[in-house]
């Protein structure tokens, strides 16, 4: 998928001594051309992409945990299979994204180190706990819905490998949102306690989902540059509005309410007005004070450390056998 170029060790390393030709780069972007790994590109563009793709990958990987939390307890075998496949897809999507980042001359291991040491972030949404089964539905419907709204325009991102990764991710994720909707639909048409469970999950996940689009446009310092570079195609608020407009009718179909008394159709704007988002909460969660920040990182680091002996063994085995093959030949 990352087509026509490769993230090999020596080949795609960034070459800072090569003079950067900004006019050619600007012309390429102006013509809606795609930037490919070994092209000359501004250092800021490269750094922005590395950071964004890495954090996107980290989000997929940390995102395995809140839903993985319910694999062992899924209430039917069908749901268990769907959930296992979905969490597995998230690992796969993280891998596609790390592969895209590696075309920019960074090592996945370094990016993972930066996640483990807290120098790189992941989406704050995954610091919320999944307290009931309905949360699995709410994540599929709202969180994946918001993610898809964000990701669809990224399929046209100016950086080829990122755009191609997004095409694959979006294609595979189409089932994620549907299964979440289906879980909630079944719950809201089930017993009263099931319906209450669904409503509670939506109440808790609605506002954090809106925060997934980031701060409002007038408070989003990097957005303008990302738009100019063709990395971002729409502003945070545009995407958030698109998500709200798409989701409100779906909530009605579910028979569930969204926890915002100010939510109402605005005929003039042709979209839904919604209440003020409490971004102080978002910033607290990003700062590490969300409900599960500590647990998510501890889980990830523990798995990585527990597996070190196996990774080392596989590498030692490969070296030994490469030597043996050589000495035979």
């Amino acid at each position: 998928m990352y087509g026509n170029d490769f993230g090999g060790d020596q080949h795609t390393r960034h070459e800072p001594d090569r003079p950067h030709d900004d006019r050619a780069f600007t012309a390429l972007l102006a013509g809606e051309g795609r930037v490919e790994p070994r092209d000359d590109m501004p250092e800021g563009y490269r750094k922005t992409l590395v950071r964004q793709i890495a954090q996107h990958a980290h989000s997929e990987i940390i995102g395995m945990q809140p839903e993985g939390n319910w694999i062992s307890r899924a209430p039917s075998l069908r749901r268990k299979a769907i959930l296992m496949a979905k969490v597995q897809d998230e690992a796969g999507h993280g891998l596609y994204l790390y592969a895209a980042a590696e075309t920019l001359g960074v090592d996945r291991a370094d990016l993972v180190d930066q996640l483990h040491s807290g120098r790189q972030k992941y989406s704050s949404i995954f610091n919320y706990p999944t307290l009931t089964w309905a949360d699995v539905g709410a994540i599929g419907w709202l969180v994946d819905g918001a993610a898809i709204t964000n990701q669809v325009p990224l399929c046209r991102c100016s950086y080829g490998p990122y755009a191609r990764a997004m095409v694959r991710v979006c294609k595979e994720e189409s089932f994620h949102q549907r299964q979440g909707f289906e879980i909630l639909y079944t719950l809201s048409h089930g017993t009263p306690s099931q319906k209450a469970m669904a409503q509670d999950a939506v109440n808790r996940y609605w506002w954090p989902s809106l925060m997934m689009f980031g701060p409002p446009d007038d408070d989003s310092p990097n957005s303008a540059q990302s738009m100019a570079w063709g990395i971002k195609r729409f502003s945070n608020d545009e995407l958030r509005q698109r998500f709200v407009d798409m989701t409100v009718p779906q909530a009605q179909a579910l028979g569930l309410t969204l926890p915002d008394p100010d939510l109402r159709w605005n005929d003039e704007r042709g979209g839904y007005d919604y209440g003020e988002i409490d971004f102080t909460e978002l910033f607290e969660v990003i700062r590490g004070n969300g409900p599960c920040n500590t647990e998510r990182m501890a889980h990830k680091r523990a798995a990585h450390q527990a597996g070190a002996w196996a990774r080392d063994a596989a590498e030692a085995y490969a070296e030994k056998h490469a030597r043996r093959t050589e000495s035979v030949a």
Binding site: G8, D9, A109, Q305, A308, D312, E315
Partner: peptide
Amino acid sequence: ASTGSTDGKNPDPTGSGRRWPL
């Protein structure tokens, strides 16, 4: 090279300095 056991003070939190190739 080093095995996975980290003592918590290791600045390399992967628990391993070794990496599988791409």
